[in-house]
């Protein structure tokens, strides 16, 4: 049986803006197992990034983690709640045990420093290396690991001297420099072209196998999910709609939203006469719909859906859904 490395429970984050309280995510719960690739999918604004950032308290004002627990299973088997740690303690975890890769490689790198410097810095901060000198030496290794040709010279390059794909490799290099146990990749390929995306995804798979890292992959691209993930959580308007293995989600989607989403994607390898679109738009999270947040767009909505918030129920082993139909 797989053992969890991260248990997220009732995670709730609100943003206190002038327009009102944005209930960005509410009561998000799921487990991430050791060594797996866990995908978090959903449309823009559904709370994927906020969820992943909340793990290590990376929520900036006006946001606040209102409640919830993020139980992290350490290497030695002990557990801690990441949300209970103070700033100093959480910084020791962030970047070392739980590392992030963000969407835009241009914004993630500092244009004023060489890529070697930036990778070395990540290690120096966490004392993974003795000094800067060792850091630079290691940086060359890391560039080699992320398959950058000619790493000895590339290490001295500034970000603007690299292509978009190369930059994202460097960002990944920075992420894995401390051999993190959990790597959170937030839309790592959204800004890239398909051919480059394929290379980056392959690289992440390779690294994951080599170091047995747990990968939390955030994306809105169902194709990427199908290619990469072991298990999937589908989010809608700040809540988890469905969790299951890739096969469960793709072959037996239970939630009407998941079903709609899958039917709305034009699959290039299939012959599609007509896409099924989901009517309506994503709701405003300041005053989300009562009951199930999907009910205004749902073809099967009933009275219960309008009134009661559906709970996450296990329908088959490992397959959870939050829907009144089940």
């Amino acid at each position: 049986m797989s053992e969890p490395i991260l248990e997220v429970r009732d995670l709730t984050v609100h943003f206190y803006t002038y327009a009102g309280i944005v209930k960005a995510i509410e009561d998000v719960s799921f487990d991430v197992y050791k060594g797996e690739t866990f995908a978090l999918v959903g449309e823009t604004g559904c709370g994927k990034s906020v969820t992943s950032r909340a793990f290590t308290q990376l929520i900036e004002s006006p946001g606040r983690i209102v409640k919830g627990k993020v139980i992290y299973h350490k290497e030695d088997g002990s557990t801690i709640d990441l949300l209970k740690l103070d700033e100093e303690e959480v910084r020791k975890i962030r970047g070392k045990e739980v590392a992030y890769i963000f969407q835009d490689p241009h914004a993630s790198l500092d244009p004023l420093y060489t890529v070697g410097h930036q990778i070395a810095e990540a290690m120096v901060v966490h004392n993974t290396v003795k000094d800067w000198k060792e850091g630079f030496r290691k940086a060359v290794d890391i560039l080699r690991r992320v398959l950058i040709p000619d790493p000895e010279n590339r290490v001295k390059n500034y970000p603007h001297e690299l292509s978009g794909g190369m930059k994202q490799r460097v960002v990944i290099g920075t992420g894995i420099s401390n051999n993190p146990r959990i790597l959170i990749a937030d839309e790592p390929t959204t800004a890239l072209d398909v051919t480059v995306q394929a290379q980056i995804l392959e690289l992440m798979n390779k690294l994951k196998r080599e170091y047995n890292t747990t990968l939390i992959l955030i994306t809105h691209n169902m194709g990427v999910v199908a290619e990469m993930a072991d298990r999937v959580a589908v989010m809608y308007a700040g809540k988890i709609a469905e969790i299951g293995s890739v096969d469960q989600i793709f072959k037996n989607p239970l939630h009407p939203y998941t079903q709609g989403l899958l039917r709305a994607v034009p699959n290039p390898l299939a012959k599609i006469e007509r896409l099924d679109a989901i009517p309506g738009t994503v709701p405003n999270l300041i005053k989300p719909p009562k009951g199930c947040r999907f009910h205004p767009r749902c073809p099967h909505a009933t009275e219960a859906c309008r009134k009661e918030v559906p709970k996450l129920k296990e329908i088959e082993p490992g397959h959870f859904v939050a829907c009144h139909l089940y």
Binding site: P283, N284, I286
Partner: peptide
């Protein structure tokens, strides 16, 4: 906002 969220597109 709420009304629109429900009715349109």
């Amino acid at each position: 906002m709420e009304k629109e969220g429900e009715e349109n597109v």
